[in-house]
Design a protein around this nucleic acid. Structure first.
Lengths: 213, 213
DNA sequence: TAGATTGTTAATCGATTAACAATC
DNA sequence: TAGATTGTTAATCGATTAACAATC
């Protein structure tokens, strides 16, 4: 397991603060405190102070943090000012939804092409993003120097798509399947398991409904 | 914060084992061990043993666990044999994707109606699921004794939809917006933050690309 | 029997929270 | 100055991993 100076959990919390800060900015609010952010996000204020410290930003005792400075610091830290182009493989339900949305530019990512094997999809466009046959993936990744691949195929195909991505030179994979990918450990992988919560909902609901009061 | 006997993290791991067990079952494999499951899932074998213990199932030293028994035990534990009907609010990109998929029945959940305020969507069907105006939500929840609500509206509307759900008698919310909902603590909430990984991808990729080797 | 695997207790690790001095 | 808030160190908590006896 690779050791980073900054943990993933810290990195994941920063966007949470960021969203609230953007709302404050749009309302013209100048200052905020970690106490206020804590109330909004549910994260402990000490935790927030540590996370902010990671960005290198310092606050002012008694006043707190300047909202715009904090936004800037988080954007810098997450490298959200640069936009990385990404390729998406698997234009099904979720894949199409992601292409239609495609508003991650503020978060450093922009999908610029989709790939699928279904002839009825190839050549079409979704939200102005062209769908190519999977056979062209490798070539286009190399020619366009793409670093990020998004996997939205059915689980059975996830590993083979991941292999293709790694061979093609992809450095980071955003995996929307529940499959644990076997890939070199220096490749960045972020898993999104959409249905993770279903066990919890089902179990907790059963507990609640059988509890006689 | 409510205290449960079983932690959510344990509940979230069980479906991970479950998926692999189903594959084994389909291949006709009779026995498995926690060591094998550990290799497949990346979860420590001691952890898996503890999780299985929660279901009440006992294994056989030297042989391991009977695959079908383990599947059965997890289904029982998660109450995955009963199917709960659910209503989905917000028939946009993600909402439509979830309706089109709607294969959670094995996981105790089935979406039976969608709700939206967009007149162009109301009255239509997606994957044979009818879309109703939001104004009918409360009435239908009560008449059909629905317990689960799914929120797939834009973040700005999430809290008001959650309020409506709670007032209508919904007991569990599957929230696909990044908004931290303010609701009574006895309501079950599972959050799916689709874009949680974007900070990690952006930051780690920047670290990787700036590292001179 | 020997040995693989379970089930459980103890040890470790990491993340979260509490405490408090520093500061404007 | 008094007091709110930061920044940091210490304490706590929970989750993960190690160790090992029990068992078939």
């Amino acid at each position: 397991m690779k050791q980073y100076e900054v943990t993933n959990s810290a990195i994941r919390r920063l966007p949470v603060y960021y969203r609230h800060l953007k709302v404050m900015e749009s309302k013209g609010i100048e200052y905020t405190s970690t106490k206020e952010l804590s109330q909004l996000t549910g994260v402990h204020d000490t935790q927030i102070r540590k996370d902010i410290a990671l960005t290198g930003l310092q606050g002012t005792p008694r006043k707190g943090h300047v909202v715009t400075e904090l936004i800037e610091a988080i954007e810098d830290f997450l490298n959200w000012k640069d936009t990385n182009s990404a390729f998406l493989v698997g234009v099904g339900n979720i894949g199409s939804a992601l292409l239609n949305y495609n508003k991650y530019e503020g978060a450093g990512l922009k999908v610029i092409a989709g790939f699928d094997n279904d002839p009825s999809k190839i050549g079409k466009e979704i939200n102005e993003i062209r769908i190519f046959p999977l056979s062209r993936f490798s070539d286009l990744v190399k020619r366009m120097h793409i670093h990020i691949g998004i996997i939205t195929v059915p689980g059975d195909y996830a590993q083979s798509v991941a292999n293709l991505m790694v061979e093609s030179g992809i450095l980071a994979i955003w995996n929307f399947t529940p499959v644990k990918l076997k890939i070199p450990e220096d490749i960045i992988v972020e898993n999104v398991d959409l249905y993770r919560g279903l066990g919890v909902i089902s179990r907790r609901l059963a507990e609640k409904l059988t509890k006689k009061k």
